[in-house]
Computed example of a mutant assay.
Amino acid sequence: MVIADKNLSLPDHTQLPDSDGNFVKNFQEHPQSILLTDSILPRLQEIHPDGYYCIGQDSGIYWRLTDPPEKGAEAPDWFYVPNVPPSLNGEFRRSYVFWQELIAPLIVLEFVSGNGEEERDKTPYKGKFWIYENIIRPPYYGIYEVRKASVEVYQLIANHYEKMLPNDRGRYAIPPIGVELGIWQGRYQNVELPWLRWWDEQGNLLLIGDERAEAERQLVEIERQRAEAERQRAEIAEQENARLRERLRALGIDPDNLS
């Protein structure tokens, strides 16, 4: 459902503001978004070999025509939309205009910077939770609180959000993209925090580019060490063989003419 005044025409993403002028709440939010995007890109490229998907990071989703226009948008900290072109008419997206696209995000994530009231606000036409549940309607809505080292995930079932239960690994399964969402305690961009991250369905952490490069380096090193160990074993075997041949010759036996 997109709400618009009948007297207003429907603008596209090039005609709507791409910012509401607010500062990002803290220095952790952008690294958190980058971490989520970087690690899930290989998975999304598998799902969408045609490249038809988009990811928004603190980007506006316009769902209502208002004056000023930005009052009719929500700007999730992170969201993913399947089966839409990555750009429109050759231009980077300035925002995601719901009445232009018609496809809802599959998952929307909000990073709590206050006490969480804003992200759980169910006030009709104003509260984030209400707007996501009733208007934008992503099948999954996650609320991440770094201070509490927690994330809660809601799934849209029978037109209402129901709070999901974590699996045995303490994470939340997102079956349409074959991943789990949960908390990872570790260091990223020189900061030790409980970060929000993805795992695959087998419980393997989805790695970011630097981690993938390091994992590849370690695999190369393991292979080098294996090859070196094989070379040393072969060298030792050759030395033992040479000593045995020498002993045979000392006994008057030609090792090349053994029958």
Rank of each mutant, 00 (worst) to 15 (best):
T37N: 02
I40G: 14
R94G: 07
V108P: 01
R120I: 01
S95R: 00
E91L: 11
I55L: 12
K71Q: 15
P69H: 13
V84L: 09
T123V: 08
E145W: 08
E74G: 13
E119W: 06
W63S: 07
V146A: 12
Y141G: 03
V81D: 02
Y144P: 08
L109M: 14
Q45T: 04
A73T: 12
E101F: 01
K126I: 11
D67I: 02
L109K: 01
Y140K: 11
H48I: 01
S95I: 09
Q57H: 05
A73I: 09
H48R: 06
D67S: 15
I136M: 04
G90E: 12
H48T: 10
S113G: 06
E74Q: 07
K122W: 05
Y125S: 12
Y96F: 10
T37I: 02
D50I: 12
V81S: 13
C54E: 02
F92N: 07
G116C: 06
S59Y: 03
L36D: 01
I103F: 12
P85T: 10
F92H: 07
D58L: 02
N115D: 14
E133Q: 15
I103A: 12
D38N: 13
G127W: 07
G72L: 13
N83F: 06
I135R: 00
S113C: 12
I55N: 00
F98I: 11
S33G: 09
R93T: 14
I107F: 02
N115H: 13
G72Y: 15
Q28M: 13
P69F: 10
Y52E: 05
D67M: 07
P139T: 06
Y141M: 05
Q32N: 05
I47L: 06
V112M: 10
K122V: 14
R43C: 14
F79H: 04
F79Q: 13
S95E: 08
D50N: 11
Q45I: 01
Y132C: 07
P69T: 11
G90D: 09
L41C: 15
V84G: 09
R137V: 15
Y144G: 03
D67A: 11
G116Y: 05
D58E: 11
R120D: 11
Y141W: 12
G51K: 07
Y96C: 00
P105D: 01
E145G: 02
D38Q: 03
P49D: 15
V81L: 11
G90P: 13
G116E: 01
